[in-house]
């Protein structure tokens, strides 16, 4: 079942949570190029860079801004309702917020670690459930969850971030199953190392990809019936192996 409003896969409305996310904006831009006409960028402080807004407007979209803080779950239901009121039925919701702190800092300051986990996992739980409620009620729509290979098998080099992603990935799969039959669906995206703002200054891992590649893969998944997307695709089989690698070897991996 394709849960889009148009017979040919066309999408009209998009809500981006973490409205300045590089990956998120790349997905939104593609959707607008393909005909999406109402977009909401929800970010802390309710702002987005003028150039991003203008680019989307030039492509024909009406762009709305809203204030959204992933760390304040009590505001999430209201935000989703505001989005539906402004955009109409939500065709695609993309929670793209996230923070990638360094494990060294987390080791030093557990409070920072807990705060980031509250964004990377807790924020996705409240925003995801709030969005799912709307999608279920409207009987269609897609939630795109940006998980990561970091959560498929957690590594010692970034196990706080990784474990939050592991939690998010499990949450997204459970939510997908709970939405089964409602007309709404969840697409779980598992990128590897993405060369972009979030990873600036880090040495790219093997099989790293660009932001554009992630966005393209998401668009393909929206058109198909796929529920899980690995970017690049060969990370799927690679991680099937990684998962069964003996712990003693896994632990010694450099990163």
């Amino acid at each position: 079942m394709r849960n889009v409003r148009n017979a040919l896969g066309g999408i009209d409305t998009v809500l981006l949570l973490g409205g300045r996310s590089e990956i998120g904006l790349a997905i939104v831009e593609r959707l607008v190029r393909d005909g999406a006409r109402r977009v909401m960028l929800a970010a802390r402080g309710g702002t987005a860079p003028a150039e991003d807004i203008e680019r989307l407007e030039r492509l024909g979209a009406e762009v709305h801004l809203a204030d959204f803080d992933a760390a304040r779950p009590e505001t999430h239901v209201t935000l989703i309702e505001e989005a539906a009121a402004k955009l109409g039925d939500l065709d695609v919701v993309i929670p793209a917020f996230g923070v990638l702190g360094s494990q060294a800092v987390y080791d030093e300051d557990p409070v920072v670690a807990a705060r980031d986990v509250a964004v990377n996992f807790g924020g996705h739980v409240s925003a995801g459930l709030a969005a799912a409620r709307s999608l279920r009620e409207q009987g269609h729509g897609t939630l795109i969850v940006l998980s990561s290979v970091a959560g498929v098998r957690v590594r010692r080099a970034n196990f706080v971030y990784g474990s939050a992603k592991a939690g998010l990935d499990g949450f997204a799969q459970g939510l997908a199953d709970s939405l089964h039959g409602s007309g709404a669906r969840v697409v779980v995206v598992r990128p590897g190392f993405v060369i972009g703002r979030m990873t600036r200054g880090m040495t790219p891992a093997p099989m790293s990809v660009t932001v554009d590649a992630v966005a393209d893969a998401v668009i393909d998944a929206l058109r198909s019936r796929r529920r899980t997307v690995w970017v690049p695709a060969r990370l799927g089989p690679v991680f099937a192996l990684m998962r069964i690698l003996p712990r003693a070897i896994w632990r010694r991996l450099p990163r």
């Binding site: 079942m1 889009v4 148009n6 017979a7 009987g139 039959g181 409602s182 007309g183």
Partner: peptide
Amino acid sequence: MTLLTGWGRTAPTPAT
């Protein structure tokens, strides 16, 4: 809920 489409059988959606 019943999944409904039109004659073209595209874009099914559930309804009571």
